[in-house]
Amino acid sequence: MSKTLGVWDHASPWMRDPEALAELERLGYERVWFGASPAADLSVVEPALAASTTLKAATGIVNVWDGEPDPVAWRRVTEAHPGRFLLGVGAGHRQLVGERYTKPYDRLVSYLDGLDEGGVPESGRVLAALGPRVMRLAGDRTAGAHPYFTTPEHTAAAREILGEGKLLVPEQKVVLSTDPEEARALARDRLAMYLQLTNYTNNWLRLGFTETDLADGGSDRLVDALVAWGDADAIRERIAAHWDAGADEVALQVLNPDKMDVLRALAPVRSGTSF
């Protein structure tokens, strides 16, 4: 598989702007990932696909607790835009789902069973996966995995579990700034919510961070490992580290306010060249 870049955002309005989408396509980005638990009816991705020609779209992720699978929506989107949509699904978080969050692994299996019954092929879906058990499920039942808020070290471990031939698309948060205070402030603003979610904190502990790293808004060590910041070359080094670890695509989430300016600076295609 070729190494590509995607764009990840919380289904923000700019991600539905036809001019912005057309520019992302010109800049060489592979795919836009719509976060913030988009609905299974896939209404959020259809305008993006209609507004572009080759740009792909994915959900990052449809939450399996928000309802049952919607194979009808998947068929509608894929028939209108063949080869351009990838359904990302995941189990969300106990702290956000509440009492419904029981046996999340079983719920994932049941949801995948429903997609099977509805005719959604394994090649048309990926699974949000952090821990080894769900990562193995992603390899067994889907096209691959879409880990979120991780490191190149996690990417390497994920590739080992998935094996070759499975799609691996980690999300990577970036801040284009060489000012450590500014960059880490933007990073901690985004990190704050995730420090309350045990799926992420447990994963970071598995990666070798400590409870001290998780305290008081996150240590510099944790922030610097999770959020790539610096000049464009420094951020490209982090992207390359994921690729070298086995990622097929890296989905960039820009934390700077001027998102498009950053994406232009990091574009895989600029003036007909690539990096």
Rank of each mutant, 00 (worst) to 15 (best):
81 H>Q: 08
83 G>I: 01
84 R>M: 09
84 R>L: 05
84 R>C: 12
84 R>T: 09
84 R>Y: 10
84 R>A: 10
86 L>P: 08
87 L>T: 06
87 L>D: 01
87 L>S: 09
88 G>P: 12
88 G>W: 02
90 G>D: 09
92 G>V: 01
92 G>D: 02
93 H>A: 14
93 H>R: 13
93 H>P: 03
94 R>D: 11
94 R>T: 01
94 R>C: 04
95 Q>G: 14
95 Q>R: 10
95 Q>Y: 13
96 L>D: 12
96 L>H: 13
96 L>G: 07
96 L>R: 15
97 V>K: 02
97 V>L: 02
97 V>C: 10
98 G>D: 07
98 G>H: 02
98 G>V: 01
99 E>G: 12
99 E>M: 10
99 E>W: 09
100 R>I: 01
100 R>E: 14
100 R>F: 03
100 R>K: 14
101 Y>R: 10
101 Y>Q: 03
101 Y>P: 10
102 T>S: 12
102 T>I: 13
103 K>V: 06
103 K>T: 07
103 K>W: 06
103 K>C: 10
104 P>L: 02
104 P>M: 06
104 P>K: 04
105 Y>A: 11
105 Y>I: 11
105 Y>L: 15
105 Y>D: 13
106 D>N: 15
106 D>V: 03
107 R>F: 00
108 L>I: 11
108 L>H: 03
109 V>P: 05
109 V>N: 10
109 V>Y: 02
111 Y>W: 13
111 Y>C: 05
112 L>W: 03
112 L>D: 04
113 D>W: 04
114 G>V: 05
114 G>F: 04
114 G>H: 07
115 L>W: 11
116 D>A: 12
117 E>F: 08
117 E>I: 11
117 E>T: 15
118 G>N: 04
119 G>C: 11
119 G>F: 08
119 G>Y: 00
120 V>W: 01
122 E>Y: 00
122 E>A: 15
123 S>W: 11
123 S>D: 06
123 S>P: 07
123 S>K: 11
123 S>F: 05
124 G>E: 06
124 G>V: 08
124 G>S: 07
124 G>D: 02
125 R>P: 06
125 R>N: 01
125 R>M: 10
125 R>K: 08
125 R>Y: 01
126 V>N: 01
126 V>A: 13
127 L>V: 15
129 A>K: 12
129 A>I: 07
129 A>C: 12
129 A>L: 07
130 L>W: 13
130 L>E: 03
130 L>N: 09
131 G>F: 07
132 P>N: 02
135 M>E: 00
136 R>N: 02
136 R>G: 14
136 R>F: 00
136 R>E: 07
137 L>D: 06
137 L>C: 08
138 A>Y: 00
138 A>S: 04
139 G>R: 10
140 D>I: 00
140 D>P: 02
141 R>S: 04
141 R>K: 14
142 T>M: 06
142 T>G: 03
142 T>I: 03
143 A>Q: 14
143 A>R: 15
143 A>H: 07
144 G>F: 06
144 G>R: 06
144 G>K: 09
145 A>S: 13
145 A>H: 03
146 H>A: 11
146 H>E: 05
146 H>D: 02
146 H>K: 11
148 Y>G: 05
148 Y>H: 14
148 Y>P: 08
149 F>S: 14
149 F>V: 11
150 T>P: 05
151 T>L: 11
151 T>S: 14
151 T>P: 03
